[in-house]
Structures are given as C-alpha cells and as structure tokens.
C-alpha cells in the first residue's frame, strides 16, 4: 500500500456530505463493496458513517475521503491491488 498521491487519482465529487458521497457511489458504481469505518486504502483510513461504500471498476476504486474542514470528496484512483483486496471480500450490491 502506497500513498494516495502515487495512485493516479481524480476527484469525482467535492465537498459533499457523507450521505451524498455514499449515494453517488451506490448509484454510479456497478460493483460496490461495504467496508468498515477505518478501512485502509493506501495511507488513508476511511472516515464515515456506516454503511461505508467503496466502488470497484476494473483496476480502479471509488471511495469517500473525508476532511475535517472541507467535507467529503469522492475519489477515483487506480489500484489493482486495492481492487483485488476488496473483491476478495464478499461482494455487495
């Protein structure tokens, strides 16, 4: 696991609420996995109110990234390793 900066990421949604981020991922991602708060992606422990959803599309992942002062962002990042790790858990749709 590296840092987010090394993952070639893009911001899909900026400064939204955690509910808006959850709904965005639920509606826009064909493959969705539920993870526990604190789940680690790269050097980030995911922050949020359960259910915390992470989308997977090929070798990219889509996840919420919450900052204390700026709300929640939805990030898409390329990481085959992270995608495989998520797929190894039970898939939820």
């Amino acid at each position: 696991m590296g840092c987010l900066e090394s993952m070639n990421y893009e911001v899909l949604l900026s400064q939204c609420t955690f509910r808006e981020a959850r709904e965005y991922i639920r509606k826009r991602c064909r493959e969705v996995h539920e993870v526990a708060p604190g789940y680690r992606i790269a050097d980030i422990h995911l922050i949020g109110v359960p259910p915390l959803l992470v989308g997977v599309d090929g070798d990219t992942i889509v996840f919420p990234y919450t900052k204390p002062c700026h709300g929640t962002f939805v990030i898409r990042a390329g990481s085959g390793e992270e995608a495989a790790r998520l797929r190894s858990a039970k898939k939820k749709r």
Binding site: P37, L46, T66
Partner: peptide
C-alpha cells in the same frame, strides 16, 4: 458533517 463522520468512525472502531 465531517465531525459527525469522524465521531461515527470512532464509535465503530
């Protein structure tokens, strides 16, 4: 909203 998310995370972990 972020404060609620952080508190919920601590509650969960």
């Amino acid at each position: 909203d972020s404060g609620v998310a952080y508190a919920a995370t601590v509650a969960a972990i």
